[in-house]
Design a protein around this nucleic acid. Structure first.
Lengths: 150, 150
DNA sequence: TTGCTAGCTTACGTTCACGTAAGGAATGGC
DNA sequence: GCCATTCCTTACGTGAACGTAAGCTAGCAA
């Protein structure tokens, strides 16, 4: 797999913000409300550091928020799947216990499925809207032709 | 077509709110910021009345807002297509001038096309997200099977 | 006419999701 | 060691999108 060694250059909050198209303030805020896990083991007052996995998690969160138009509270609930994913990477190293691993995976699965449901539902709504708009466009074009030939 | 006679029972703001799943306050607010046209010829202080077409327009507005997650300001720009649609109905009676009709239709078309672009773009983003989620689910399921057979 | 309900205007309040400013500390370069 | 960045915490400010309350009116029904 692609489980890079834990030595993969840690990023600072400013870099993460840039990479994800957001701001440091937002990242701290998301941490504050529990949407993002507190940056890995840092003494208070010192700087937050992030891994590439953290960046991806943030990307997911932002995408969910933007595309589904959900309040952060709901995003948080959904994003626990991402947490679990991160946990998986770590526990994968720390724990060898298959039962523990199983518990983690079993917790993540329904959350991913819930996300899928929401996304598919939203797609369906948008498709309906797309259809309506195409129909409307068709009628407008027909009108134009009528006006041409009249 | 379905151009009902203008006598199609007028609705009051509370009914419209119920029909569209919103509140009177919101409807007044939308009128205030110019997102909805001021309810047809009413003396100030008196009650607003709405036609079925107004209800549909509001539905469209709410749908655009919710599905595209746009600020009301942008919704307003987009929704001028809807205004034009309403204008069409009225002017269709009031004006016989084909040039005028043509102007109206030509103004509405690009707005509908802009809406379509936005909707299609959003659908594409959501599809990408859907794919990612399916892939993630696939992996989680694979993990589970591994843990089963191990 | 009187009452009741829903609506009107005006204005202040609220929630969410951050923005911004102040004062201080931590790195990295020289 | 010094200095410039970048970051830290704390706290107050802000824009969008309404909610809510107060005092008054429209319109219908009995």
């Amino acid at each position: 797999m692609s489980t890079a060694p834990a030595s993969e250059r840690l990023l600072r909050i400013g870099e993460v913000a840039e990479l994800t198209g957001t701001t440091p303030r937002t990242i701290r805020f998301y941490e504050e409300i529990g949407l993002l896990p507190p940056a890995q083991g840092r003494e208070p007052g010192k700087r937050r550091t992030y891994s590439e996995a953290d960046v991806e998690r943030l990307r997911d969160v932002l995408r969910l928020k933007q595309l589904l138009n959900l309040p952060l509270e709901q995003v948080r609930e959904l994003a626990e799947a991402e947490s679990t994913r991160a946990a998986l990477r770590r526990e994968f190293v720390e724990t060898e216990d298959p039962a523990e691993r199983r518990r983690i995976v079993e917790a993540a699965l329904p959350l991913v499925e819930r996300q899928l449901e929401l996304v598919c539902g939203r797609i369906a709504e948008l498709r309906k809207l797309e259809d309506d708009l195409r129909e409307r466009r068709r009628r407008l074009r027909a009108r134009l032709r009528e006006l041409d030939t009249a």
